[in-house]
Design a protein around this nucleic acid. Structure first.
Lengths: 285, 285
DNA sequence: CTACTTTACGGTATGCGTAAGCATT
DNA sequence: AATGCTTACGCATACCGTAAAGTAG
């Protein structure tokens, strides 16, 4: 059976035209390629080249061979990729989170239940998560709604309530509760990776200018030293993680009272049962 | 890039279950396989086996790998086959003959015009020859009719007239000509490789018992030493190659007056023009 | 005790790079 | 002169087979 090394060298010669250039690209020497090409002809028992004194060219069979060889090389690369990917899939759990707090709370629990596994977490707006679960891109997801498709198994794992955090002088700070539309038009300081919350903001306060901070430090810095409204949630308030000199007003819109569901494929329920057993509907709170 | 040798050994281990047996089947030693499997794991950077003290087994990744490996090996085998086949196609002209005389007459001419080429000749009933030409299985064919499909280029290359050869005492031997139906029911001595003539016999003299001889020598022996009718043609008669003590009566059926056409794909006409130039409509006669 | 894997060892062969030769442009 | 292929030569290493050790059934 012809070895892939020879096929690599053949395709290199095909693409670069001369043994010299091919050798350079392959980080080897010209004589090596001379020998390899000869060996290839020997093994196939078929002439692949037309040789003149100082020139080597593929004949018609050689051209075909080089083209076929690419197929084989692709198969070889595909093999390696598939094996590595399969191994990886056995050792990693990929999770989609629709918001940061579920990730903060659940990641350590998952790491504990599936110790030894690599946890790969994505965060984003969760409209695509169901598809990604079906396609096996994710094995788990946390959604902010209960999925209806019977293909999934889901369990409520907590809730989160959005607040707006205002400096004491702000006229809105005296209300017992606020609606998002009351904030529309105000400049608001925001973090970038906040999952589905982004979408709610875009829809309910489309006229606000968002000062989006990628770095948590920058956000904190600006929050402390400015009067821009920022969002917070009951999760932080319950833990006393509030900003000095600000008051937190609950937002009354129903979308701002999120309920989180941990979801997997029904067919994988058994595998993840130990995790579901560790989780109650108040785990995230 | 992983080498095919390792993949062959992996699949052998997969199919035979132990390194020992795989080694035996591959005509190599067990330690060789031990090393190879280790190397494979190293190169992929992924564990493929579960090792106990005196037992080696594929893990889940290993099983997948062995299955994928087969794909790669098939690609490799396919590569070799295709290259060899392509080279062969450049050096051989495959021809379908509908009868033996065209082969006898044309083969030396083709050999002369395309000297250096290998001539591969098939003989058979010619109903499939058009398809074979289209599929490239044949580059040339001799049919006993002119093909209508404009995909083909054809040229008449001769004719042949069927005779029946009877011993002098046979009552039919006094007729000036005979129809095939007159022979139906008679036992007839026949050669096996006679192309489209077989079909005519089967259709026109279905009740005859055919004494089919595979060997030309046997046929000749029986023809000389028996009174069974045999077929001959004007080709033999014109050359005086007749059986002693027999008379040759022409067969009047129109099917028994064959006209031969040399055919190639119209797209290949240029390639075969030197051959067509050597051929007239009386070449076979 | 048998069957199997692994490790160790030594020989061989395979592959490589350098250097040199030669032909063409 | 520069470029490109081939051959020759010597070296490194990669691969292999035999032998031996160890373990489980």
């Amino acid at each position: 059976m012809v070895e892939l090394r020879l096929l690599e060298q053949l395709t290199a010669f095909y693409t670069y035209g001369t043994l010299s250039e091919a050798a350079e690209k392959l980080h080897t020497s010209q004589p090596t390629l001379t020998r390899s090409m000869k060996q290839l002809e020997d093994e196939l028992g078929v002439p692949l080249f037309v040789r003149t004194k100082n020139h080597l060219a593929l004949n018609r069979t050689g051209i075909k061979a080089a083209e076929y060889a690419r197929q084989v090389l692709l198969a070889g690369q595909d093999f390696e990729a598939k094996v590595r990917s399969y191994d990886r899939s056995l050792h990693t759990i990929s999770i989609g989170f629709c918001a940061p707090i579920p990730q903060t709370v659940l990641t350590p629990i998952i790491n504990h239940v599936f110790s030894g596994m690599t946890i790969s977490a994505d965060m984003g707006e969760d409209s695509l998560f169901e598809d990604h679960l079906k396609q096996g891109i994710y094995q788990l997801a946390v959604l902010h709604y209960k999925p209806e498709d019977p293909l999934f198994y889901s369990q409520k794992c907590g809730s989160e309530h959005l607040y707006i955090s205002l400096t004491s002088g702000n006229p809105l700070s005296f209300y017992p509760e606020i609606h998002l539309k009351d904030l529309d038009g105000l400049p608001i300081l925001l973090l970038s990776q906040i999952g589905f919350w982004s979408k709610i903001h875009r829809e309910k306060t489309p006229n606000s200018r968002y000062l989006v901070q990628i770095e948590d430090d920058s956000f904190r810095e600006l929050a402390v030293n400015s009067d821009y409204p920022i969002f917070s949630t009951d999760y932080f308030i319950r833990r006393g993680q509030t900003m000095p000199g600000r008051v937190n007003i609950p937002i009354a819109d129903p979308e701002c009272q999120a309920e989180y569901y941990l979801v997997c494929l029904a067919s994988e329920r058994k595998r993840f049962q130990p995790l579901f057993n560790q989780i109650t509907e108040h785990t995230i709170q």
